[in-house]
Design a binder for these strands. Structure first.
Lengths: 231, 231
DNA sequence: TGTACATCAGTGAACGCGCGTTCACTGATGTAC
DNA sequence: TGTACATCAGTGAACGCGCGTTCACTGATGTAC
């Protein structure tokens, strides 16, 4: 197209293209039979190449999977960051999250699904993950009243105290404990519904996950009941 | 021990014993390398038997896995039923759930983790699953005030209306919509925290999952704020 | 109590399979003069 | 523009492996008379 490709030789472009196609096929395979069923030979076959050819592009099967995991994290982080950047509030982020998850359940599971015992993600993934929380915290900041945790009960106060002490995950973020708390609830509660939905635990129950999700989201983004409507 | 074993021949007892040991080793393997790494041959090796011997006890690898899944569901259903039967309230069930989950994370994931695309659980597992919900509904019934959903906002009312219409999952259970709603929130919110905790998403964040869980649980089991402490 | 027969747990060899990965190679593409 | 050389994508054969599963069999345990 019109992109200059400054500094990219034809060979480099070709490499990038093939790498991309390998990943595409990999995602298709994961969608079809899960991450544990991913096979380099099968991908090569599908691309009309011989198995060993893939070793020009990925050092090993584990390498490929790690890169897919990284891409999955990155894709979520981008989605959240973009939504936050374009002015979305927590509700907007909630919808973005669900859309992202439904868009490719196996990608969701690569991030939030059953961990493989023994596998440890490389450090840069942790960094990307904290980018997700940062976007969340951005959106959680502007919340109605400053609110008084103590008024919401001792448990509320206890959690906010805990959050005030343990804020490594929000390291360089200037969010106050109530915002940390909102972001955290947002995260855990929406994942509760999402993961059950994507794992199929609502099918057969006759419930509409979208209704559950919307209700949860609305409740999460309502200003604290104390400061409004109660005479 | 003192159990009579009425009608069980020595051979039957032996069979049951070996079957049980096979399952034990299977759980060990799953704990070590995940469900997808389960190998009949490896189990046999570990038991000092030849591979084909296992086919006296399980028709196939899939058969064994299905039985492990069934056992996992049953074990959770029993845990919840027992807790409910011994008078536990929702808070009690919540703690029972977490204990059960932490006791063997891979067992938890076999029930609530990433589903294998294409695999469909046999019908009786669905039945067991609805037993879990039944125990939950039992405990969710005796809740403070009858409460007025409309007072909690339109979203609240909408969800309860949805639940009133879609109660297949609570088929023969005499719980009113507010109880259905409590049970459902309980279920989705606690799983949100649990699944993130067990997948390791709190490590590195520096948060104590137990504190999060307790707070969520306390908030879930508090009587609706409207009917108390608010003047 | 003893003998004849049936049941059934476990073995060992074998089949076919697909996997990840290595290696020495061919042939096309790009680079330097 | 043409030739000599380097780079590098892709091939095909091969290695070793472990898997699930079948089959014909041995030998021990239980049952019937």
């Amino acid at each position: 197209m019109a992109t200059k490709g400054k500094g990219t030789t034809p060979r480099e472009r070709y490499r990038a293209q093939v790498r991309a196609e390998i990943k595409e096929r990999a995602w298709e395979q994961i969608a079809a039979s899960g991450a544990s069923g991913l096979s380099l030979n099968a991908i090569a076959r599908q691309m009309g190449m011989s198995g060993p050819a893939l070793y020009r592009y990925f050092a090993s099967r584990d390498d490929l999977i790690t890169e897919l995991v990284r891409d999955a994290y990155r894709s979520l982080a981008d989605t959240m960051r973009d939504a936050a950047a374009s002015g979305a509030d927590l509700a907007g982020l909630g919808h973005a999250l669900r859309t992202w998850a439904l868009d490719d359940p196996q990608r969701y599971f690569l991030v939030y699904g059953t961990p493989v015992p023994g596998y440890h993600a490389p450090d840069d993934i942790t960094t990307i993950a904290s980018g997700i929380m940062a976007a969340l915290l951005d959106a959680a900041r502007p919340a109605g009243a400053p609110a008084d945790a103590a008024a919401d009960g001792p448990d509320e106060a206890r959690l906010e105290a805990h959050l005030a002490e343990h804020r490594e995950w929000a390291a360089d973020h200037p969010a106050a404990p109530p915002a940390l708390r909102r972001a955290l609830s947002f995260w855990t509660r929406l994942h509760g519904i999402l993961s059950l939905e994507l794992a199929g635990h609502f099918t057969g129950m006759g419930l509409d996950p979208a209704v559950l999700y919307d209700t949860e989201l609305q409740q999460l983004t309502r200003r604290p009941a104390a400061s409004t409507s109660r005479p």
